[in-house]
C-alpha cells in the first residue's frame, strides 16, 4: 500500500507535471531548432514570439467569451488558437520581410542575425506589454480537472491523490498530434524533404532547383504555428505572464542544444530531458521516503537537491555540460 502511495506521489508531482512541461518546452525547442537549421541563426526572440502568440490567443478568447461563445467543458482558448495561428503567421512573415530578409539577402554572418533577433525580441516584448500589460493572467475556462485528488482517493482508498488537470492532458495530446504531423511533413512530403535538403546542404539544394524563398516562407509558417500553440498551452496550464515566457528561453534553448541543434526530433526529446531533470532535481522527496522506508529511517530534511527557486540552474548546468562534452547533442540521428 505504501509502495503504491509512493508511486502515485511521484506520478502526481513529477511524472505528469514533467510530461506536460516537457511538451511545452519541446514545442519551443523545435521552433528554435528549425529556425537555426534553415535560417541558420539562434532566434532570441523565441520566448517573446511565443508570448505574442499567447496574447493574441487570449484577446480572441476574450472576444469569444464576450459574445457568449464557449466550448463547454473545454477551454474557449482552443477555439481561439486557430485564429491566433493565422495572425502569428502573418506576424512572422511581416518580421521576416522587413527585418530578417535584408540580412539574409546580404549574407550576413549568423552572429549578426542573432543580434538582430535580439532587437526583434525587444520590440515584440514592448508590443506585448503595451497591448496586454505585464501582469499575470489566467484565461483557462471550462472543466479544470479530469481527475481530482479527492475523488481519486475515494475511488482507490489510497492516502495519496492523483490530480490530473485537463490542461495537462490537452497539452500532451495536442503536442503529440502536432509533432507527429510535423515529422510526417518533414520526412514524407516533397516540400518537407526539400526543407531538410536546404538545411543539410544549401548550395546543393539550390543546384537541385529548390526555391529558397519558399523554404524560408514555410519555415516561418511552421514557426508561427509552434509559437502560438506552444505559448498558448503553457499559458493555459500555468498562467500568462510575458516575463515568464522570456525566462523560459533558457530551458528551451537547453532542450534544443541537448537534442543537437538543427535536429527537430532531438529537440522534441530534449524538451522532456530538461523538464524531467528540472523537476527531479527540485522535488522534495521527504514524503516519498516516508512511504518506502521503515519509520526508523525516515529523513528529517526535505530531501530536496535544489530549491525550486534555482530551477533554471538545472537547465543552465545541462546546457554547459552538453556543450562541453557532447556539443552535437546527446541523440544521434537525422539533422533537419
Amino acid at each position: 500500500m505504501d509502495f503504491l502511495n509512493a508511486i502515485i506521489l511521484l506520478l502526481n508531482y513529477i511524472f505528469v507535471p514533467a510530461l506536460t512541461y516537457g511538451s511545452q518546452l519541446a514545442l519551443g525547442a523545435i521552433f528554435v531548432t528549425i529556425i537555426y537549421g534553415i535560417l541558420r541563426f539562434a532566434n532570441f526572440a523565441t520566448g517573446d514570439m511565443m508570448a505574442f502568440g499567447t496574447m493574441v490567443t487570449i484577446l480572441i478568447t476574450w472576444y469569444f467569451q464576450s459574445i457568449g461563445i464557449s466550448l463547454g467543458v473545454l477551454p474557449t482558448a482552443l477555439l481561439a488558437i486557430p485564429f491566433a495561428i493565422f495572425f502569428m503567421i502573418g506576424y512572422m512573415l511581416f518580421v521576416d520581410k522587413f527585418v530578417f530578409r535584408y540580412y539574409r539577402v546580404n549574407k550576413s554572418p549568423p552572429v549578426q542575425l542573432a543580434m538582430v533577433s535580439i532587437g526583434v525580441m525587444f520590440v515584440t516584448q514592448a508590443v506585448v506589454r503595451i497591448i496586454i500589460g505585464p501582469s499575470d493572467r489566467r484565461f483557462f475556462d471550462g472543466e479544470k480537472f479530469i481527475i481530482k485528488a479527492g475523488e481519486f482517493k475515494e475511488m482507490t482508498g489510497l492516502n495519496e491523490g492523483l490530480a490530473i488537470k485537463s490542461s495537462q492532458v490537452l497539452t500532451i495530446f495536442i503536442t503529440l498530434i502536432l509533432v507527429s504531423i510535423l515529422f510526417w511533413f518533414l520526412n514524407k512530403t516533397k516540400t518537407g524533404k526539400s526543407m531538410r535538403a536546404y538545411s543539410d546542404n544549401e548550395d546543393l539544394a539550390l543546384l537541385s532547383g529548390i526555391d529558397p524563398k519558399r523554404v524560408v516562407m514555410i519555415t516561418w509558417i511552421i514557426a508561427g504555428i509552434l509559437a502560438t500553440i506552444g505559448g498558448a498551452l503553457y499559458g493555459l496550464d500555468k498562467s500568462f505572464k510575458p516575463f515568464t515566457y522570456f525566462n523560459n528561453m533558457l530551458p528551451i534553448f537547453a532542450a534544443a542544444i541537448v537534442g543537437g541543434i538543427g535536429n527537430p526530433f532531438g529537440a522534441f526529446l530534449g524538451g522532456y530531458v530538461i523538464a524531467f531533470s528540472e523537476i527531479f532535481i527540485t522535488y522534495a522527496y521527504k514524503k516519498f521516503f516516508m512511504y518506502i522506508l521503515p519509520e526508523s529511517m525516515e529523513p528529517e530534511t526535505l530531501v530536496q537537491l535544489l530549491s525550486t527557486d534555482y530551477k533554471f540552474a538545472v537547465s543552465f548546468s545541462i546546457l554547459v555540460i552538453v556543450l562541453l562534452y557532447r556539443p552535437n547533442g546527446i541523440f544521434k540521428g537525422k539533422v533537419l
Partner: peptide, 18 residues
Amino acid sequence: KNVFAGMSVEENLEMGAY
C-alpha cells in the same frame, strides 16, 4: 559537398528530381 549527407540515398535521388 555534393550529396545531402543527412538524408537517405532515396531522398537524395528524390531531391534531384525536385
